[in-house]
Design a binder for these strands. Structure first.
Lengths: 212, 212, 212, 212
DNA sequence: TCGTAACCGAGACGGTACGTCTGGTCTTTTT
DNA sequence: AAAAAGACCAGACGTACCGTCTCGGTTACGA
């Protein structure tokens, strides 16, 4: 949104708008330094223990240069996290619904089992509950893009005749990811491949019974 | 909420432990005043905007009297919230599994649709992601008791022959509540009775297909 | 003033009055423990860093047992310090004024050169500036008794004809001790025997010139 | 009081040192507001009853802006008090030693007889006994400058032949001010012009007797 | 090619809340 | 009753960060 990125899935940024073209433009080097420092601190301390002052100090950047681009700690961490995370969520195309759903959920589970990734995602979901601005960004730039990818998968399944055209896809996706987030956030039971397979089996059974 | 209960599994409290029996004991009146002030502020402002100083001022209590009992804002809010919330989650006994699951999920949905309850629960889940001590209390005093109640429901279903004895009850409960927390926390889709019915229908279909 | 001390230089205590003779009498052992703990803490940390809570803990005594006897940290420290200090200030009788004054000032200088004694005296004078109740005790039970002793010395000098009967004894004593306290409190110049001799020489010269 | 003064002995300030020249400089307006609030509170309540929070509130300043400049209540009060006080101590030049000493002591006595001035000076001397950092500032910025002024007076007396060149000036000044501080701090006898005259008479007699 | 608007790092600004500490009092149980 | 213990209310302490502003200086546009 700020710089030139002609190709690409477009604006997944939470950042503020670039102003008019007058004056000195925002520096790319500064931005990279901020995001890199953020990524490092996120990995070392987690979101809740990270402070904007620390990011500024580590990036050798003034605090104002951060606030010029992001409105809060949450939106900054979001930007540092989300592009990378989305890239690690592949769009499977195995030719059948079960395989695709399993591919989706397994990739997610494997990503969040990385301690840094899991902790950061948990921290972001927590932050979303206290920062309405971040909540908007979260829905628009994380939940919606994720859903868009998933819809492509489901559309293909409909085309293949493996899913009814009138199926409740919103529900299906909440059944796929809801239990996973539940275990991530409450930590009461393990998140592993067996869990992913069980969840997908349930969804497939419900689909075959026609209750989706 | 906190009184002396000689029998029982004891000390799964979020609060700090009472010291030796010597000296002046902690005052019940002080404790009640703190919890009442906390409940009020939780309703007025939400967890993240509530401060310990405000609680102390409203309860006409020294800050030390709060810190003597609770180690953080999260554990205090947890104590003020959780007993009341659990009491509002009935143990349905309709004679069949579908009705019981529907009763459970509908009660939860209706509770969190109350703006104060929903906001507080969201805030607590968020806080759990940043306060490891609260996370322990959360699992021990909220997730586990909830699961215990649900296990009773599932046991009855097993006795009635409506659920296989070897069913994966952990998965079943995550399928029941996971999508619901997902919608509560991400706010991407509505939480209503229709949603509850759809979720239960999926679980019943999976059960009948024998994939649980 | 509290206990039985028929002989002795009379009430040099800063402590509160004993209550009516009803009920259990104040315990001597408790009192001794408090004063002993106070003396130890005064030596280890100095008056300003000592707290009533620390005294209570070290003496294995409740805070109330201290407040029952003394009204403030200053009056307690005063009591722990002053009897001992006064005992170390002898009443010289050398047969001439110069020798007596020198004896007085030298004893004082030597006492306050002990680090603990000097620090405690400085701390008490400092405390006197902020605690009006202590200031009263200070004047009545320290300044006045000291002056009484000195007056005895000066009276003997008058009897011997070494000092005019109408001499300004208040001024004389301020000339004797004022410079000494000045050096103690401001620390700008050393406090030693040479200083004591110089001060006494000045007073003797003034006396001989008849300006006292 | 604080401005940039390239020549001069430099940095004998009680305040903390200015950091590197980078970043936003400390604001003079903020500093003035703090000192003014301090002066007002010193007059209204006295040093020991004044709090940093009150100063910050009255000056409409964050507490950090005070701590950025001064390390303690004492050093702040010192800065607010001492320049003004020193300015009120004139450098007399009557042409003879007696008149100059009388001028010095009378000016001091008259200053400390102002209730606010006397109370603040007493409070500062008391605080000096508990704050080693303030003690350093006190000697460097108050005792030493006072002594420097007095040395000028004594040097003139030596040039005039009214004081021996080898006179013990340190002793002389302690004889002049010691009794005065003694009465100020212990409050046992009045501080008035008659007292000042008596003290000076003693010093002059000793000088004439050659014991200085 | 120059003026100027907006950037840059650094760090002070006014604030808020933190969690700790101490003061002096009050309430238990124990002696 | 007085004892020890320790909780009570109150509020200042000094620190950490917040998000904004100011400083001296730089950079790149557009007049």
């Amino acid at each position: 949104m700020v710089e030139n990125d002609p190709p690409g899935p477009a604006g997944t940024e939470a950042r503020r708008e670039a102003p008019s073209g007058r004056g000195r433009p925002l520096s790319d080097a500064t931005e990279r330094a901020i995001l890199q420092a953020t990524t490092g601190l996120l990995a070392e301390r987690g979101l809740s223990a990270m402070t904007i002052e620390e990011v500024a100090a580590r990036a050798h950047v003034g605090k104002a240069s951060i606030y010029r681009r992001w409105s809060s700690k949450g939106t900054l961490a979001f930007d540092a996290f989300v592009t990378d995370f989305l890239e690690r969520q592949p769009l499977p195309d195995t030719g059948n619904l079960r395989g695709d759903l399993l591919g989706l959920l397994r990739a997610w589970v494997r990503a969040v089992r990385q301690p840094v990734t899991g902790r950061t995602l948990r921290g972001l979901v927590g932050e979303v509950q206290r920062d309405p601005e971040l909540a908007d960004a979260w829905r628009e730039r994380f939940v919606t893009p994720m859903r868009a990818r998933h819809d492509a998968v489901l559309r293909r399944a409909i085309e293949r005749g493996q899913l009814a055209p009138e199926a409740n896809t919103g529900l299906l996706l909440d059944l796929l990811y809801g239990p996973a987030y539940h275990r991530l956030l409450h930590g009461h039971l393990p998140l592993d491949d067996a869990f992913a397979e069980d969840v997908v089996a349930v969804i497939m059974a419900a689909n075959e019974a026609g209750v989706l």
